[in-house]
Design a protein around this nucleic acid. Structure first.
Lengths: 220, 220
DNA sequence: TTATTTTGTTTGACTTGTCTAACATTTATA
DNA sequence: TATAAATGTTAGACAAGTCAAACAAAATAA
């Protein structure tokens, strides 16, 4: 069982290692991210190396082992589930939940997180469009973009839906919008951020910002 | 701000000090309760004394200061709110929640507990009949008994109601059962724990165990 | 009232996680 | 490529919280 502190190192390592392709992280970057001085980081890396969570060699960049990656993903899973729970079930705003989730993610109780998962309907992506790792620490590594963040003339493919309420799904059905569908953005209304899009037989459908915020896409 | 560990000492001290009238606690008892050796307890007591949370004198019994009592009550508040939340809002059983609550009670976020309080409808007693301290650490010091735990011929006064749902309150209304009412227990049915009680003009009303579990009483 | 048991304290050691100061290596730059 | 800057490591210190061993006081029993 990893300590609270170790978990924080793993999580930070995980975030930083996903910024470049090879997954390598500098001691210095980790130190800055965690607000912990470099010597402390070095010694913790040695410790995590003995636990086979990190590949460590003097003066070489850090890298999570497979097992380290899994542990980290599980912490991130707990963090994201907690954030979603706080927002969806307790009525917090997205700006308020990070600090609480930072603490709750370290709770030792598989049941607690399993219950959240269940109450949330086993979500696979969080409302930022970031994937939520599953119970085995596996996650889909596509980072989706919200449709609302795309620009005029972008060609995008619908990849996922946030907050799939009944009403919302019915709405998408009526508009014949479904996963895998490709659409072009004809224009973005500056006033209310609504979008006019084109797809299949629909030559100019207007989608409100509320809708665009809930559609996650891959850019072509 | 007290540490996680300090909070555990305060909580244990609070529980033990409510077992006798003068609120005094032995180092040995505290040591046993926390599963921490006596020398460690002694040194923590000295530390808490410098923080003005405990009255400490060598070889004398321990006692919480007013400020220590308040801190402890606030932790217990968080513990009880958490337990109730887990049961009422997440669907856990009462047997499953203690360990989770032991961890969540240390979360630093007034908003988080304020939200739970709100979602639970500002409960004043928990389903065990134990009082929940308010935001200032004040609590009503009556320890109620569930009607279901009383015996034949007991004379009891209705003191509080658990899980006051609309339906339940309507039911009580129909039966003319209200706070402050005194009733005698005529008999207890061994098969289903239902009770036959007598009060005012009602000479033999039968109350199911479900009802008796939700009525908190003071014994005469 | 003395002896024994129980309770409480002191001392010194250990672990985890942190720091600063000094030193070493790598990388960038002049 | 020599030097300066940035990055990383070693060494030693410290705080929090824990323990075991030895000692001290208080309570109980003989």
């Amino acid at each position: 069982m990893n300590s609270f502190v170790e978990e924080n190192y793993l999580k930070a390592l995980f975030y930083l290692s996903n910024k470049n392709v090879d997954g390598e992280v500098n001691v210095n970057d980790l130190s800055k991210r965690l607000n912990i001085k470099m010597p402390t980081v070095t010694s913790m890396m040695k410790k995590l190396a003995t636990k086979n969570l990190v590949h460590y060699e003097s003066y070489k960049p850090l890298k999570l082992t497979e097992s380290g990656k899994k542990e980290a993903a599980l912490i991130i899973r707990k963090h994201r589930l907690t954030e979603m729970y706080l927002v969806e079930k307790m009525g917090f705003g997205w700006d308020e939940v990070h600090n609480i989730a930072e603490q709750i993610e370290h709770i030792k109780s598989p049941d607690f997180f399993a219950k959240m998962d269940e109450l949330l309907g086993y979500p696979k992506i969080d409302p930022h469009g970031s994937p939520i790792p599953d119970k085995d620490g596996k996650m889909v590594w596509v980072k989706y973009t919200k449709l609302s963040e795309c620009k005029q003339n972008d060609s995008v493919k619908i990849a996922a839906v946030i907050n799939a309420s009944d009403d919302f799904l019915k709405f998408l059905n009526r508009k014949e919008i479904h996963l895998g569908l490709t659409m072009e953005i004809e224009s973005v209304e500056p006033f209310d951020q609504s979008m006019v899009v084109r797809y299949n037989e629909h030559s100019s459908e207007t989608l409100s910002n509320t809708v665009c915020e809930r559609l996650l896409v891959e850019k072509a």
